[in-house]
Design a binder for these strands. Structure first.
Ligand SMILES: [Mn+2]
Ligand SMILES: [Mn+2]
Ligand SMILES: [Zn+2]
Ligand SMILES: [Zn+2]
Lengths: 150, 150
DNA sequence: TTGATACTGAGACTTAGTCTCATATTCAAG
DNA sequence: CTTGAATATGAGACTAAGTCTCAGTATCAA
């Protein structure tokens, strides 16, 4: 099976792009990153390796295009990405209090979604399905009923 | 039945906030706006009425909190809102070419979603379900098969 | 080895949104 | 009505995320 590195090399070659040291640093850091991350975290991590913000974003775009990375959540103007080491597609529950992200897979939802698109003659490319609310732990912490102003 | 204006007045009063002229302008413009709009469009429309950007955003927050408006889409760092004149909940198909937005209602998806949350003991507050792709018209225009680089 | 091509970092720029603060409005009490 | 405490306002400074430009640098196919 193809490693991410090999996949990236193939992608670059096929587009006549060059395999540079900064690009490799971005690849490594992005794949090593914790499962869900924001671009600016990458920028921060890569400053240590002297990779500029511009190059981080430029490479991020390539990693998206090549499918090695996916944009999976948008909250409050923040985009969150995750590596796609051949992971199966999934969607997300996002805790509004602690930011915890729970992944779920639901083929029946996916199927219904496709049916909707068929009905509208819409050619689906991707989707974003995120559910916002409170995780178990955060429900506990705020256990009292929703308070109203005094 | 309560008009949006009445609902807003009640909301403000109940929070000891004042019913000001700028706030009314924002309310009117937001509700008159075309169905899906971005905050900056509102800002532009309201400059004519001498309402400042700051006030537009501040009022937008109030309209969200009071439920008169809802944030319904996030694409590419742009937030899109729509008025909720007691409209039923729905989700969106977004055309990547022309920006067209198609609304759909699917109770079975909603039900499955709730089941997922129950399984994870997650208290759902809201969700974002948007499907990106190409609308019928835009599929026609680019009728040739997905091209690969020469 | 080499030169055309592509890539780089620095930092200027953009865009969306937030914040501060001195002044202006609102509205409940009198 | 008047009045003044509470709240709201606009101007414009500020921030954060991201994009763009450009002069110098690295890559790689020949
Ligand atoms: Mn995930
Ligand atoms: Mn809608
Ligand atoms: Zn939580
Ligand atoms: Zn379209």
């Amino acid at each position: 099976m193809e490693t991410p590195r090999q996949a990236f090399e193939a992608f670059l070659r096929q587009k006549h792009l060059k395999l540079t040291q900064p690009r490799l640093s971005v690849l490594d850091t992005a794949l090593a990153a914790r499962r869900h991350f924001e671009p600016e975290e990458l920028v921060a991590d890569l400053r240590a390796k002297a990779v500029s913000r511009a190059t981080v974003y430029r490479t991020l775009a390539l990693l998206l295009e090549s499918g090695l990375l996916k944009e999976v959540i948008e909250t409050n103007g923040h985009r969150i990405y995750e590596p796609m080491h051949g992971l199966p597609h999934h969607d997300h529950l996002v805790c509004l209090e602690c930011g915890k992200i729970i992944e779920f897979v639901n083929p029946r939802i996916e199927a219904l979604q496709e049916a909707v698109c068929r009905r509208f003659d819409f050619r689906i490319v991707s989707h974003l399905h995120q559910i916002m609310g409170y995780c178990r732990k955060c429900q506990r912490k705020n256990a009292v009923a929703p308070r109203r102003p005094a």
